[in-house]
Simulated assay, not measured.
Amino acid sequence: MSTVDDVHALAAGMPFVTAVEGPKGNTVYQVGGKSFVFFRTPRPDARDPETGEKYTDVIMFWVESEEDKDALVHDASTPFFTTPHFDGHLSVLLRAAHLDRIPRDELAEIVQDAWLSRASDRRRRQWLER
């Protein structure tokens, strides 16, 4: 099963990637200046339904399309979710606490797809040709 270290290793292992530090020390992985995996800081749109506490461990992954987003969010077997704040935004959210529900090979696909959704045509083509 997957861990936060796996997310970092997989994202950092993609080509042409830079890791930047967000304003609160959170890591943002980018390709060509575009984020594709983003460790979020606590925000009011993602809270524990029982306690009302903001989640401190949300990771955002970009997706290629609304269909991809819907498939991940509406599949009851996955822990991916979204919030109204992200309506119309091509991304899904995942709590790090639930990474253990995702096999590492599936996480690798999610990270690769996130990278592909944000990389330039040239970079995408180069990577896919390998």
Rank of each mutant, 00 (worst) to 15 (best):
D6E: 10
V7H: 01
A11F: 03
G13K: 13
P15C: 14
V17T: 15
A19G: 13
A19I: 15
A19P: 06
E21A: 14
T27R: 15
V28F: 09
Y29Q: 11
Q30V: 11
V31Y: 01
V31F: 02
G32S: 09
G32Q: 08
S35C: 08
F36Q: 06
F36T: 02
D45A: 09
A46D: 08
D48P: 02
T51Y: 00
T56N: 04
D57W: 01
M60F: 03
W62N: 06
V63T: 09
E66R: 05
E67V: 06
K69V: 01
D70E: 06
D70Q: 07
A71F: 04
H74F: 06
A76E: 05
S77E: 04
P79C: 05
F80E: 00
H85Y: 07
L90K: 09
R95G: 05
A96C: 05
A97F: 03
H98C: 06
L99H: 02
D100N: 11
D100Y: 05
P103T: 07
D105T: 09
D105Y: 10
D105C: 05
E106P: 00
E106R: 09
A108P: 06
E109Q: 12
R118G: 03
A119I: 11
D121V: 13
R123I: 07
R123Q: 15
R124C: 10
R125H: 12
Q126E: 13
Q126R: 12
